[in-house]
Design a protein around this nucleic acid. Structure first.
Lengths: 280, 280
DNA sequence: ATTGCGGAGTGGTATGACCACTATCGCTCA
DNA sequence: TGAGCGATAGTGGTCATACCACTCCGCAAT
């Protein structure tokens, strides 16, 4: 347990001056105040990744509100991937990589974002990431990318695992870029696209070509050629988009043109299994 | 198979999808199942922006779970900006632009995203948006941008309102780009940066220069010169970043009360040593 | 016809009680 | 003495219930 002020249960003395760290909430929606409080503690550095929060009951007491309200606030933060609850153990600040919130996926369905727009967004982000990686990648980063490239080549006969390694490579590039924000945004877009891709990957026809492009991108980054890396990444993603589009066209049973029809119909096309992607 | 009798927005008897829209939940965390159910309804097109959801009590009944659980799920979706609850009225699907989730701001504080990285992310997104806008902006979009430009010029003497119009211009460009996903991502980054900006805008020294750049960007977009628009946007954002950096440095002197910058924690870095035994 | 009021329905919060899970410590047993 | 194990307390997860505050809409009094 950390000493985040709020006085850990059995430490009446230790620096517990900060018991007032959680001040009693004022007006406004109670549950939102919980989120705000936690956010401010994070921003002030009192709460850091891996830290354990006080129990819900303790928090409710300190904040002067009921446990359900506290719970709701914590659940919201948990859904955002900011913290993580373990049944019977406690609530902890998320330590791993930013959770791929399903936010974009929901917004995409709600507002009818088109698949083309999604691919375009991904292209914008990843091309930039490739360029940055070419400038900043460390040897360690390069090693990660090289391994991912090798793995993709090794799984050309297994589309499913190929997709996993494909994402692993792109994530390695994102990490190498040195910009975690852009990398996070890419993760969001990728996660939103994932469900669509798993359906078409089975029929993908350019796996080997795609793997070769990974290798080309990697080599450009290794050679510190930003322009070349960006060009290669552009070509790679355009191929992926074309593949997807053609497969989708071949698969569709009904007629639904336009921009939003494809995505929405696509996503809930058939039963899908929720699997954790991206073992980072 | 439970019928929920979705009440559509203004059509009392609109295709009362009285079928198995909401099925009883099976395994897994109950509250997550609520989110999943709603998500699938959105993705299947059953729920659209502006629609009204059944009451929480009804939902709880139909789903076979308690109201608090339903509430928690709805609150999560509400926090994501997917839906919106109105006290005494009901819960509705969000119709407006995607709410600026504070997700990035939280992740930024938690993982120590640097301000430079944030500006870099913004630059990547907005430069692309400017390029797309130059290719796709309609007359209506151009009018919106022109108005925003005029407003910025008109508020050169009022930094606070200037900041509002500044954001309005950038949003107009985002809309004109025709890519709502990238626009949404930009909104997220902008929202995360906002708190930092309001602190320095008071001392901003290049307001007029900034406004002139807006005008230049607008003219490039209007002339369909994508490259020029992107170049101008790059210069504009680089100026903003330099301004912010210098102002932040200038503020080092003393304490400015109230809530400090959201990124103070990052600045401190590893200063705070883990005093208690870590939970890791 | 207009106005005002109140009831019905909705989301917001609180209380209290269980349940399920986990970690830990002390106990039993070899 | 040591190792295995079971009771136990603490945690998050869920639920039922009640009450409050707000919104809407219709009915009644003007």
């Amino acid at each position: 347990m950390i000493n985040i002020g709020l006085a850990m249960r059995n430490a009446p003395n230790a620096k517990s001056v900060s018991t007032k760290m959680f001040k009693r909430l004022g007006e406004g929606v109670t549950t939102d105040q919980v989120v705000k409080q936690i956010r401010e503690l994070i921003e002030s550095g009192e709460l850091r990744p891996g830290d354990r929060l006080p129990s819900e009951r303790t928090l409710a007491d300190r904040l002067g509100i009921s446990r359900p309200s506290v719970r709701t606030g914590l659940r919201i933060l948990s859904a955002m991937g900011v913290l993580q609850s373990r049944h019977g153990s406690g609530t902890f600040m998320s330590s791993g990589p930013p959770a791929e919130s399903q936010l974009l996926r929901l917004l995409a369905a709600l507002h009818g974002f088109s698949a083309d727009a999604m691919f375009e967004a991904r292209r914008i982000l990843e091309v930039s990431l490739a360029g940055l990686a070419a400038e900043r990648a460390t040897d360690e980063h390069l090693a990660m990318m090289a391994e991912a490239v090798a793995d993709t080549y090794a799984s050309l006969d297994d589309p499913k695992s190929y997709l996993v390694y494909d994402m692993q490579f792109h994530r390695a590039v994102a990490v190498a870029s040195g910009n975690p924000i852009v990398a996070t945004l890419m993760d969001m877009v990728t996660a939103a696209l994932y469900e669509m891709k798993v359906q078409t990957i089975e029929h993908a026809t350019h796996l080997e070509e795609s793997a070769a492009m990974h290798r080309k991108i990697y080599q450009a980054i290794r050679a510190r050629k930003a322009d070349a890396a960006m060009t290669a990444m552009t070509a790679h993603l355009e191929l992926a988009q074309r593949d997807f589009a053609s497969e989708e066209a071949a698969e569709k049973d009904g007629s639904h043109g336009g921009k939003n029809g494809g995505f929405r119909a696509r996503v809930n096309g058939r039963k899908r299994k929720r699997s954790s992607k991206g073992a980072s």
